[in-house]
Design a binder for these strands. Structure first.
Lengths: 253, 253
DNA sequence: ATCTTCGCTTGATCCAGATCAACCGACGGT
DNA sequence: ACCGTCGGTTGATCTGGATCAAGCGAAGAT
């Protein structure tokens, strides 16, 4: 390049204490001094681009990763050669927690759009959590929250029909974006219809048809990746269940 | 009762250090002194019976529970009034991890057969993990393993057909029982067909038909709750995927 | 010992959503 | 500006497993 126009990396290396995500992320509820100590072990890498991997399945586990800006998908290979999308991760969300057990990543993480990522070496983090009770508690909560989220997905995949799944997906995105200060009703999807379908256990065609139907019903407006939710209340009642009275899955004692 | 034949509770209060499960359970990899400290906070309750609850959804979170003998199912209510079975828990398995985040149980836990359960007050455990690095690590691993297990279930519910699901379920039970020193090929189911179906996202009728089919195909022998696996290899190849060439779930880049 | 209940099995039918097929329009490359 | 690729949409058809229906045997209740 002819012109020496290097942008100082310092500009993107926002310390945790100045990060707008600190209330969602690891530092949540930490004393300023402790945030400082956490700050010291966090590595801030240059921005990653669409298609870049944070890690791949079977990689040695070294660090947790936190999305600072952008979005990431995680996915696991299924035995037949296909793959299962496990999640879409927005700013403030932590990735890699499933790798602690076997000290190896069981899934891959791929960046969906240009993203900034914080890397947190796990061994250092573990040392830190042993001396900062509130950080230890935060870690337990984080891991527990992930389990709770997976539980929600199990219920979704086990009991909900296509309509309910897509509505739940849209509302989940909406809520999470809103928490991050973005619009809850107007946003862009960084993932393809394929990926949405894969994530929800549906065929692409079904996802596409549902987008069309939801739009026809006035629930939302769709233009390619651009989504506008027009009737959040109705979407919520769709998820709620009674969508179309499928037989109640009863349970014996 | 006429005869004073009270069995001393001490007999069932096996300390962690003498428990056959210590290599699967929380004490895994701990130094004897640390096992001792863990032992001190564990409460051992009288045996629970079929139908008893360890906790219910929305209960305040106080303790983790570990199955010592018997089995437990966990399940979450689905909005429509039905429920989703989240898991069946065998000796050595820890229950309640999903409640840490919100300090409240999001699911219920019900005993499937007469069972002995260890209760571990979480606050005390947290104090302990802060001073015993290997216990802290064990806790992280435990939580992480749970996430990994949920991930497996997501793949199962998202990508596998009925046959693959049931085969995977049987093999999972088999493997876990074997780890606990029991037969991998001859065991009793403590849960009903209903519960199996609910867990796997299938109708009871489908589960029943598959049991019959597997038996007709010589893969197993079924007599009510009594299961004998006759051809583990074939069951494994069923799970492996190519079961019946359903279209490979491909993925775009 | 008899009744009742309930879990389970088996058969018949139905349907949500997968699969197959065709087309279209956006976008990146040359 | 043109082309080729690919993600997305829409229509037609197929099917795995749900739903509906009926009967059966084991275990608990009286």
């Amino acid at each position: 390049m002819s012109q020496q126009k290097v942008i100082s990396l310092e500009n993107i290396r926002v310390a945790c204490r100045n990060c707008s995500l600190s209330s969602l992320c690891l530092p949540m509820g930490l004393a300023p001094d402790d945030v400082e100590r956490l700050d010291e072990i966090v590595k801030r890498t240059r921005p990653l681009h669409r298609g870049d991997f944070l890690f791949r399945e079977a990689d040695r586990f070294r660090s947790l990763y936190v999305v600072k800006t952008g979005s990431v998908k995680t996915f696991a290979p299924s035995p037949e050669g296909g793959e299962q999308v496990l999640g879409f991760h927005l700013p403030g969300e932590v990735i890699g927690l499933d790798a602690i057990d076997k000290d190896m990543h069981a899934c891959s993480a791929k960046v969906l759009e240009t993203s900034a990522i914080c890397e947190v070496p796990f061994t250092r983090l573990e040392e830190l959590t042993a001396t900062i009770p509130s950080l230890q508690h935060q870690m337990y909560r984080l891991l527990s929250k992930e389990i709770g989220h997976d539980t929600d997905m199990l219920l979704l995949l086990g009991k909900k029909n296509a309509e309910e799944r897509l509505a739940a997906f849209l509302l989940s995105l909406s809520k999470r974006l809103h928490k991050r200060g973005l619009s809850a009703t107007d946003f862009y999807l960084s993932m393809s219809r394929h990926e949405i379908g894969n994530y929800l256990g549906l065929a692409v065609e079904t996802v596409s048809r549902l987008f069309t139907r939801f739009q026809d019903d006035g629930l939302m407006h769709v233009d390619r990746k651009h989504i506008q939710l027009l009737d959040v209340g109705s979407l919520e009642s769709l998820v709620g269940g009674a969508g179309q009275n499928r037989r109640q899955q009863q349970q014996q004692s």
